[in-house]
Amino acid sequence: MTRREMLGATAAALVLPLLEARPLAALTRYNFAARVFTPAEFALVDELSDIIIPTDEVSPGAREARVAGEIDRRLADALDPEQVKRWKDGLRAVEDLSREMNGTTFLKSTPEQRVAVLTKMASTEDETPGSRRRRRANPSSSIGGFYRQLKGATTRAYYTSKIGIHNDQHYKGNVFQTGEYAGLDPT
């Protein structure tokens, strides 16, 4: 264990009892020592990502796919320190919005109230057709900008996970075939 991991784990152990049951479960189940997020931030990202991509009848959701951990890893490895700051600012803005709308923190809000906060964040989403071929400009520090960042990072982490690729997308990739070509779907 490196010094940084140990510090992260120690910090997590100190804060964990303060958190609610569900995010606590998420943290302990994966025994994850976040490198960038505080335990409270990690729990928030974990919950936000699982609302964006929840478990459904086909596949498990973002929590099961450990999306928050992947986002933390990517941020820890990021070359641009501004990225971490944008995330921390964004998460604070989510908490501010939650207190404004629900009178309490995001994780202490009811599931319906949490969805309401995300719906509010999503209301600035650009749904104009024709923008698919372009990468959107750098996300701004606004709550809408952070929503796009959060959703982008969540989908990126989820659909590159084993769960996203196999359980959800049923990706087949390059199937090794011998003999006669078995067609587009050889399974």
Binding site: I51, I52, I53, P54, D56, G61, V115, L118, A122, E125, E127, R132, K151, G152, T155, R156, Y159, D168
Partner: peptide, 14 residues
């Protein structure tokens, strides 16, 4: 993945 919205409907559309 740039379908609008979030949640189960979003996941199904993706």
């Amino acid at each position: 993945t740039d379908r609008p919205g979030f949640g189960k409907q979003y996941k199904k559309e993706v």
